[in-house]
Each structure stands twice: as structure tokens, then as C-alpha cells.
Amino acid sequence: MALSAQQVSKRIGNPATQILTSISLEIPDGQFVALTGRSGSGKSTLLYMLSGLDSVSDGAVLADGKDLSQMKRVEKAHFRNEQIGFVFQFHYLIAELTVLENVLLPAKKYGKAAERTEFAKSILEKVGLAEKHQRLPRQLSGGEEQRVAIARALIMEPKYLFADEPTGSLDSVNGEVVMKMLELANVEKKMTIIMVTHEMDFAKRAQRQIQLADGKIMHDSS
């Protein structure tokens, strides 16, 4: 079973700019992939399309053979809620909700907040935020906020975890903590992880490195 892109292209705007050109790749379940490349090379765009958050202009993205663009409304909601976790480059927590409530927000969608509360607390404990789960995001440091965002992406134990420069805005200590969280999810939960990163040290720790340039795959380590 795998996540695969078949001849995926993306054009944006009018007049259209070609952002991705005919990308094909196959990511087997449980693989840890690092996406690298220069700024503007199309890493974020590819990540959004692999996760189904964005639509393709040509080609198709298949999860276990199922075309993401063919999903109906309810099926798509379930897929986003249960199969994927997304960590944005900027942490995007909801300011009005506490740390714990932010982490449990995906679980609320289908009424699973109560049964996931213990699990949420255990993740927060692992990332050193056990005492701070009643705080509001503005009472946290940037590194702590990013850890909460990752905890939130993990709460439904999704099959795929997408992370867009999760360590980009963090210092090396916090970056290391975040990287450890991802590695742990990959090893313990057999989660497929696709991470965009600029940092070569982190990229090397992934099983596979894919390098983009001008919307095309320039190098694929597998």
C-alpha cells in the first residue's frame, strides 16, 4: 500500500504559471520522506497536493489506489480527519482554545474528544507540555506552539503525516525535539511521514530524500 502521484502538474493564476510539472512518485506506507529544494521550487505545493488539501491541474494523487480528487464531500472529510495530519510552517493554533482543546479539535469533529483526552495528555507529556495543557497559545513559546501543532496532527493517529518546514522557525534545541517527535511517530505508529525541510541534517535522517527544482524532481534517493 502506498501514496502515489501520477504525472501531477499544477498551474496557478491567470495567466497560468506552471508550478509543478509532471511529477510521478510512489511513497510506500511507513516511509519517512524529506522534501528539499530551493525556495519557490514547489515543495509546499507538492505537499498540499499529496495530502489532498489542494487540487491537481493534471494527473492524479492516489492513496491506496483511491483517487483523492474523486472523493465525495463526506468521504473527503473523513479522509482529512482520520487519515492525514498536517503541520503547517507556522503553527496556526486557535488562540481562543487551550493547548489541550487545540490538540483535541480534530477528535471533536466526529465526537471522539472524550475518548481521546487521555491519549492527548500522553502526547503532551512526551513533548514536555504536561503541565501547560490548560494554557492558551499566547502563553507558550514558539517551540512549544509547534510541539502542540504536532500533537494535534498526531491525535487521530493518521496514516499520513505532512509537515511543512516544521523546524523552520525554531532554534536547534526545539528543532531537535520536533524532529524526535516525527521520528517516534514513524517508528512507533508506522506513520508515513512527508516533511519539507531546508535543514540538511534533518533531511539526511529521513529514509528517503527527494529534491525539487523548478517544479520537477531533480533527485530522488530511492
Binding site: 464531500r73 472529510a77 473523513h78 482529512r80 482520520e82 486557535i94 479539535l105
Partner: peptide
């Protein structure tokens, strides 16, 4: 807006 984007990314319709 960002909250809305996160909610939608989580599967909220």
C-alpha cells in the same frame, strides 16, 4: 481566516 483553514484541513466541512 487561518482558524478556518485549520478547521477545514482537519476535515471540518
Amino acid at each position: 481566516m487561518k482558524d478556518i483553514a485549520i478547521l477545514q484541513a482537519m476535515g471540518y466541512e
